[in-house]
């Protein structure tokens, strides 16, 4: 069985991504660790992990997603085993804001520039630790229809690690 290592900012992200990954592909083993977005620890995890694929999740928080991806790539490459290993095993998934945007999109809520978690907090008293509870309810079709880039890339990576 193929294996995937996910890196997320906290365990709530971990639990959420693990469940979504399993909904996409039952036939993978998924591990997850938390590490600060800026931290070289992310590079260490990538280098040490023997998983077939390492998915690095990163919030752009409304910054330019390409720049955010470049920064992550730099951190990972600094500790990587080799250039080829980065090409072969690394997938960086950048969220325009944060993972909660999948929930917002799936529920077809309007956000107009607000932070998704803030919108959810206002609407239903959402707290960070509620994130995993939404994983079973995400409507993947809606996410695909709405071309939520982070989701489409995540799905593609998990389908074929």
């Amino acid at each position: 069985m193929k294996s995937i290592q996910i890196i997320s900012e906290d365990i709530y992200g971990c639990d959420f991504f693990k469940e979504v990954a399993h909904r996409i592909n039952r036939e993978v083993r998924v591990f997850c660790n938390s590490a600060q977005a800026w931290s070289p620890k992310r590079g260490r995890i990538f280098a040490a992990s023997n998983a077939d694929l390492v998915i690095v999740c990163i919030d752009a928080d409304a910054r330019d997603p390409e720049e955010v991806e470049r920064e992550q790539l730099k951190i990972i490459k600094r500790s990587a085993r080799s250039e080829q290993d980065v090409e072969k095993r690394l997938k960086i998934v950048v969220f325009s804001y944060e993972a909660e945007e999948w929930i917002i999109a799936s529920m077809k809520l309007k956000i107009s520039g607000d932070k998704p978690s803030e919108v959810l907090r206002g609407k239903m008293g959402y707290e960070k630790k509620d994130l995993p509870k939404y994983a079973p309810h995400l409507d993947f079709n809606v996410l695909r229809e709405m071309s939520v880039r982070s989701f489409i890339e995540f799905e593609k990576a998990v389908k074929d690690p």
Binding site: W38, S39, P40, G43, R44, R78
Partner: peptide, 12 residues
């Protein structure tokens, strides 16, 4: 410090 650590691949 964050920038320096990221640059050098050194953890906190």
């Amino acid at each position: 410090l964050k920038a320096e650590l990221a640059e050098r691949g050194i953890t906190l």
